[in-house]
Amino acid sequence: MEAIILQILNGLDKGGAYALIALGLTLIFGTLGVVNFAHGALFMLGAFVAVTLNHVMTLEKVVLSETETTAWGTPLEIRTPYIEDWFGETGAFLVDYSVPFALIVAVPFMLMVGIAMERGLIRYFYKRPHAEQILVTFGLAIVLGEIIKKFYGANPIPQSAPEAFAGSIDFGSGIVYPYWRLVYLFFSLAVIGAVMAFLQFTTFGMVVRAGMQDRETVGLMGINITRRFTIVFGLAAVVAGLAGVMYTPILPPDYHMGMDFLVLSFVVVVVGGMGSLGGAVAAGFLLGILQSFASMQEVTSILPGIDQIIIYLVAVVILLVRPRGLLGRKGVFED
């Protein structure tokens, strides 16, 4: 029983990341009709906002020791982070909480990246076939990955959760779960809830939803739907970026992490139903949980390798049974 509860928690946790990326993907598809293969790169960019902020906060003052030497005979370098030198314990606190602080930096940064991406490139491909949209966004993802690799190298860069959340929580009965993973789960639920509420309860959201249903009619009513859709693209970029920032203590980021998540998230969107926000979220959590259960030894001993193909297997079955996905609408992606 404990094993099942732990795997459900694992699945929800992983599913949270899938759902956040898939939410942005389907939001963009639903509003702009673009299949954005660069969305995983936005998740990766968010993670590197956290890495960059941590690097800036831990810039060190280097003083050469006059008495001690290294094993190779050069003077020993005594390193002290500037921020701790200037602000003492407050500085140490700021460094400790660099990942949560990165959320504040990530919001405007990712919004700008999203808007620049949409205005500078994506909008020229609105009326082009989906295949061309996929090619151009996939190319963009590769370019963004290579830029990150140029500055940060190819290797993962570990980030720490704040000290207060570094350990694990014991629920008793053998259920122990890391604090930060629970934080991530609640964070993803909060972001999903906020996006849904924004679209459901604000005038802006109402117009966007109307535009998703019938863009032409909304335009005929004198509403500049294009500008709103650009902002939606920025919003999707922010969601992916925030998901990336908070994921860094769970998985040390590297330039390729976006691609790793993109493929799975795209499957999530397809399973959930193209253009369906609720479907993307539901499918994200569902596939995350299934992936966790498929990794259990009891399962892999009967079906070796099932943990690596379960998501695709479920996608095939769902598309055979429900070709529009779990909550897909009629007419979407159907010419």
């Binding site: 694992n10 992983k14 992490m257 030894q297 943990d307 690596q308």
Partner: peptide, 22 residues
């Protein structure tokens, strides 16, 4: 007790670690 194979580059090993607990 068990010897479980994990895919190279799995990234998140949580689903393989939790069964160890019990």
């Amino acid at each position: 007790a068990a010897a479980v194979r994990t895919p190279l580059g799995a990234g998140d090993f949580s689903q393989y670690i939790t069964p160890v607990l019990n």
